[in-house]
Structure formats: C-alpha cells, structure tokens
C-alpha cells in the first residue's frame, strides 16, 4: 500500500486535465471558426501542435488520405483520343501469383481467329471481402496496371456485390494521377526513359 493517501497525486493529475480543458477553448478562440470543417483546421488538429480536442468529426470532416495510403486495388486504363479505352493490364498473372490471400482471378483473352492468347484480360475479378490491402499486386506489377485506391467507403448491403469485376475495377489514368501525383510522375518518367533507350518489346503476357 502507498505510504500516504493525501490526494496530492489526484490534484496534480487534475491540473493536467484542467489545462487540456482550457486549451480546447483557447484554441477555439484563437482559430475563431476556422478550427472545424476547414482543411487547415483539420491539419492543425492532427499535427504536433495540436492541443485540446483533436477529434475529426467523421463523416462531416474527413482526414485527407496521404499519397501512400492504400485500399483495395483498381485497374488503370488509358483514355485514347477517339474515346476508346486501353487497359494497361496484359493479364500476365503476376498480381494473382503474389496475392497473399489469393483473391485475384484473371481470365486471359484468347484470339478466336488464331487461338493464341492476347495480352489483355477477358475477365478480372477481385474479391474485396478477402483482399487484405497489402499492396503487393501494385508493387510487383511490371506494367503499372494495377494500383491501390484511396476510396475506403465501400460498405454495401449485400456482400455478393463485393466480388469486383472489370467494370468496377477500371479507372482512368486521370484518376490515378489525381490520387497519387508523385508516384504517377515517377512512373511516367521511368517509362519515358525506357521508351527512349530501346524499342518497345513485344509483350507476350507470359513474362515471369
């Protein structure tokens, strides 16, 4: 048992809570209306200088996800000038091989005329119930075709909808450049250098 129980420790502790309580109001006055529901207010409350109340009032307010934030994957397509879509994916299957919970299913396109495989997916499924958001598929994709998303509000009423097919997975490069500007710039640069140093190699889709 403690030597003395005179309440000094409790008073000392209460002085801390009182200080925090006052700090909340002090900050509110100092920021006068800008502390809540503004971008700089949210940034302040989640910075090292935050004092007092720091809660972000989700869903009215949202923390901006940092660039590296990753949630379930999506497939990137290029928009051509004539409005057609060119899917970057060549259905090589590396993402489905590296996927730890094995939640990626790919059916390769077969050319009906020749019977030989074409480097694009006929079907592409991700079971996002099983996906563990590890990001390996995006990390090891040699074609920058599969990337991790920033959208985390995916609740649905029926979990059968959680097997995503091509129509739900495909998103334009525009979107990718918007959520990950630095990564996209870096990859564009790498592709530009590669293209300028040697002629584009024919991709068979079976590359390993």
């Amino acid at each position: 048992m403690s030597e003395e129980l005179n309440g000094k420790g409790i008073l000392k502790g209460l002085s801390v809570t009182l200080k925090r309580f006052l700090a909340t109001y002090w900050d509110d006055i100092k920021w006068l209306g800008r502390r809540y529901r503004t971008a700089e207010g949210i940034a302040h409350r989640s910075s090292k200088d935050a004092r007092g109340i720091f809660t972000i009032q989700y869903p009215e307010e949202k923390l901006p996800p940092p660039e590296e934030f990753r949630f379930v994957p999506f497939l990137v397509y290029e928009e051509k000038e004539d409005g057609s879509r060119e899917i970057r994916c060549t259905s090589c299957g590396i993402c489905s091989k590296v996927c730890p919970p094995q939640c990626i299913w790919i059916v390769r396109t077969v050319d009906p005329a020749t019977g030989r495989p074409r480097p694009e997916p006929a079907e592409f499924y991700i079971d996002i119930d099983i996906c563990m958001n590890c990001g390996f598929c995006a990390e090891f994709c040699p074609f920058d075709a599969i990337k991790m998303d920033h959208d985390y509000e995916l609740a649905v009423y029926d979990r059968k909808q959680n097997v995503y097919g091509l129509e739900k997975l495909l998103k334009p490069v525009r979107y990718y450049a918007q959520i990950r500007p630095l990564n996209n710039a870096r990859e564009e640069e790498a592709r530009r250098i590669k293209a300028s140093t040697r002629p584009p190699a024919f991709v068979t889709g079976e590359k390993e």
Binding site: S91, G93, S96, K97, V98, C99, P100, Q102, I104, W105, I106, V107, R108, P117, E123, Y125, D127, V163
Partner: peptide
C-alpha cells in the same frame, strides 16, 4: 502451397 493454379490464366471466380 500458394500460388494456387486456379487463379490465372483461367481464373473463373
């Protein structure tokens, strides 16, 4: 052992 054979190139979900 993973990776399972059923995922690609004939990966019917």
């Amino acid at each position: 052992a993973k990776p399972f054979k059923s995922r690609s190139p004939e990966g019917h979900v």
